[in-house]
Design a protein around this nucleic acid. Structure first.
Lengths: 147, 147
DNA sequence: TAAAATAGTTGTATATTGCAATTTATTTTT
DNA sequence: AAAAATAAATTGCAATATACAACTATTTTA
């Protein structure tokens, strides 16, 4: 409860960062599909193979919402569904060729972008910035378990 | 183009941070209204008084979308519209009593939350974390002008 | 004063979202 | 083994969000 000023500063800079990151995602990378679909596509691509509930959980969405967004991705030919033969309740969601190709171009673009950002951080501060991001995420994680 | 590994690390940690921040916003603070409305309400509250296009620009939305979200906030009694008497093309958007009260409780909650997060950062690293966030935002800003 | 520019709204179409109910499949209990 | 409970996913429904394009009202500018 001490440094109210510093805490507002922290909040403010995180707010600005959040907005910037949103714009980056929005404007630079998700061409052709919606943001919701882009997020899903990237998570599917990273997981290679994922169930609907897992995906919904990752993206913090209802599974009904998730199911329909997956529908849209399937209709656009980026994603396919396959029933898990071991437990037929599960649907294995994965990328099609077309989906992989889009995923790769998003990944490529992202890496290029962050490469640029990284290079614009003063060289002697780069390590510190990454360490700090870890520290911040750790603090947030801890605060979850506190609550 | 050097440290590919470090760049992926940066990207990954930012990704995790983004997700965490999303959950915080979503689950902890925007009770009763939708996220879109919450974002708008907070921006209006911070600005005290703002035009539709400015608001749309802040939130990176089409002004048509913005107009309708403002509609919903007006219908719920959180926000009011007033025509600018100086230039009657402009609409001055501001919070009602009810809106101010919700805004304050969101602000309060946010400050409390970030207070907790701040306190969970090791004391000797707190300054560094804030500095690093500035450095990161600066790098992102610079990358915008580069492109 | 006529044309251009600006701010905002509305028409239209699609996507997102969440809650509740339902279907199908598996696991647990009796 | 049959019944009950649980689990994963989909579907019905209704509200909201979103963007593009067309439109209205107002102000600026040429």
């Amino acid at each position: 409860m001490e440094d109210i000023k510093v805490i507002r500063e922290l909040r403010e800079i995180i707010r600005i960062l959040e907005r910037k990151l949103g714009v980056i995602e929005d404007e630079i990378f998700c061409c052709g599909i919606t943001m919701a679909q882009c997020h899903a596509l990237v998570e599917i691509g990273r997981a290679k193979n994922i169930s609907l509930n897992e995906l919904a959980c990752l993206l913090n969405l209802e599974n009904s919402t998730m199911s329909r967004t997956v529908n849209n991705l399937v209709e656009s030919g980026y994603v396919k569904r396959e029933i898990d033969p071991v437990d037929r309740r599960y649907v294995a969601i994965s990328l099609t060729e077309r989906g992989i190709s889009l995923f790769n171009s998003i990944e490529e673009g992202m890496n290029q972008y962050f490469n640029q950002v990284y290079s614009l951080i003063p060289e002697d501060k780069r390590e510190q910035v990454i360490e700090s991001l870890y520290l911040l995420v750790d603090a947030i994680k801890e605060s979850e378990s506190c609550k």
